[in-house]
């Protein structure tokens, strides 16, 4: 088994495994993932409950990381608030990827009129200021996790579309695509089974980094108050405590640190994937 059939994916993993920074990133994400998965089961304090005096500093035996201006437990907020934050990031990145791949692949594969038409659509979304457009979308509807996710996904897909289009333009003229046509593969089959798998590496890297960007975007929107006030999230914690930054630094710092670590982990993994997929950097 080790001898026969090392797929390009397995080779990429072999390179990735030797990349220390990427492994550190993976470890960070692993710890965060673990805490978010089992934390809420172990630490059963409701993050909206008032559990102590307002602005209790960290180190108190009852509330380890202190309380915010209302006396809510920061640690409980971190443990519960991570899931929505990460979920919004992942879902928004998925929306971005799906829209981007769809538009980009059709545009790059069919070219000509299709490309020109879809190119206009991409440009339309590209010239809109992303934050402003997302804010408009969220205020038009009720601020909820769903609308925030959709808003981020809808404003952020253009880069993915352009990347996918460029990959399709490059790959569609390669010899093996001609071979696929010569054995009678349909356009749909060539797009999905022949070209797309070869275009995936940069798309995966980009999707990974897009997850980090989406988390930051969510935090930014929350900071401006544009998030679901009924769901505890890291962004909401920062947003609601920002007026008390000087009196209770911990209420903002700890969720900020969590976002920072998550995005850092994602970026390290993304860079590692980029190196692993880039054949020029691949050492044999």
């Amino acid at each position: 088994m080790a001898e026969a059939g090392r797929s390009p994916w397995q080779e990429a993993w072999a390179v990735f495994r030797r990349n220390r920074a990427a492994l550190i990133g993976l470890a960070i994400l692993g710890v965060i993932g673990l805490v978010l998965a089992v934390g809420p089961l172990l630490y059963r304090v409701d993050p909206f409950d008032i559990v102590g005096a307002p602005m209790t500093p960290p180190g108190d035996p009852d509330v380890l990381l202190g309380t915010d201006y209302l006396g809510r437990d920061i640690l409980a907020g971190l443990v519960r608030g991570g899931r929505p934050t990460v979920l919004v990031g992942i879902c928004a990145a998925m929306i971005t990827t799906v829209i981007g791949i769809t538009i980009g692949s059709l545009s790059g594969y069919y070219g000509r009129g299709t490309d020109r038409m879809l190119g206009r659509v991409v440009e339309f979304f590209q010239v809109l200021p992303a934050l402003l457009f997302a804010m408009v979308l969220i205020t038009l509807f009720e601020p909820s996790l769903l609308t925030v996710t959709l808003a981020i996904g809808v404003v952020a897909w253009t880069g993915m579309a352009r990347l996918t289009r460029a990959e399709f333009l490059r790959i569609r003229q390669l010899d093996f695509v001609r071979s696929a046509r010569a054995i009678g593969a349909s356009n749909a089959r060539i797009i999905l089974a022949t070209i797309l798998p070869n275009a995936l590496p940069p798309i995966i890297v980009s999707a990974t980094l897009a997850t980090g960007t989406a988390i930051l975007f969510e935090a930014g929107l929350s900071f401006l108050g544009l998030t679901d006030p009924n769901v505890m999230s890291w962004g909401l914690m920062i947003g609601s405590s920002r007026n008390y930054l000087r009196e209770a630094w911990w209420a903002v710092t700890f969720p900020g640190l969590c976002i920072f670590l998550t995005v850092l982990g994602i970026s390290l993994v993304g860079d590692g994937l980029n190196d692993a997929f880039n054949p020029k950097l691949r050492q044999r």
């Binding site: 390669l174 010569a182 798998p197 070869n198």
Partner: peptide, 17 residues
């Protein structure tokens, strides 16, 4: 009708066995 091409090095899809 089948066809084979000039460039065997690049005529196979690299991501499939």
């Amino acid at each position: 009708i089948s066809m084979i091409f000039q460039e065997p090095m690049t005529s196979l899809n690299p991501v499939y066995p």
